[in-house]
Amino acid sequence: MELTVRIKKKLRNFTLAADFSVKDEVFALLGASGCGKSMTLKCIAGIETPDSGSIVLNGRVLYDSDKKINLSPQKRRVGYLFQNYALFPNMTIRENIRFAAGGTAAQKDEKVQANLERFSLLELADAYPAELSGGQQQRAAFARILASDAELLLLDEPFSALDSYLKWQLELELGKVLPSYEGTALLVSHDRGEVYRLADTVAVINQGKMEKVHEKKELFQKPGTLAAALLTGCKNVSAASRLDAHHVRAEDWQFDLLAGDVAEDIKYVGIRAHFLEFRRQPGENTIPIDIVKVIEDTFSMLVMVRKAGSDGKAIRCELPKKEWQQLKDATELYLYFPPEKIMVLQQ
């Protein structure tokens, strides 16, 4: 299972440029809404046409602007899971699945039955989509795609419309679907957790531009760019300038820090809220702080702080409630920035 995409398409505010290949893995495009990630999927499925480039699936050319090839969506054999599932409202679940199945009448019946069973939809087979819950609709949409001859699975923000419990259930469900595609799927999402749990490889799309392709753990540890840091959930970023090979000036926060290796082209520094540590004494990479605001979250405390006596940008720290209990009455507080956790970011 191999997909190679190299396309350009001019959109209203920016030009989408996607360049990647996927082989036997779950590949995620992570981006804010309206960044062009869904458009990339639509181009692969043939719903939209790129301006130039090529798309090749398992050696089959789906699109090639030089060779003037542009297969219709019908001929591409690409399964597309829409965000709203796009079940046909005038058909029962059974009819929806049968609509996608090919072959003789007997083969169709067999595919319908097999997929109804596989997704525990037997009892709902004769219900209409409007009578199903979001999760059931998604199972039906999966069943419908699997009954077709799709060679590739495209998932367009599959879980974003669901509550967190259901989301988890359906992420497990996806595990049943992937083996049919030799584990290959293309996932589009703005949810870092979803991407981390489901994908092997991640590419960040920012304003239509695809940034470097990362192995997922690497992306979360060293996002490399501001957009990637924010999309992977980093809450604290500051504009920064390089002082020397190991020191940066965090301009928004108004202090200097020791970091790992500081690249020449550094524009920002970032640190995840839960890597910050409170201290009672000064020390290396430790800044005296004022508390700006304390917010109680479900299982942790969010403490907004800034450098003592400054009007710097507030920094968000996250710590277990118990730890905060011990700290909250201290007269002087300091914040330690572990140098190995500081992310050096480019534009």
Binding site: G46, S72, Q74, R76, F88, F99, G102, I145
Partner: peptide, 15 residues
């Protein structure tokens, strides 16, 4: 009509 319904039908191979 939701355009996704028509897109879905196309990607599923319907003429």
């Amino acid at each position: 009509l939701d355009p996704n319904i028509l897109y879905a039908a196309r990607t599923l191979g319907a003429s």
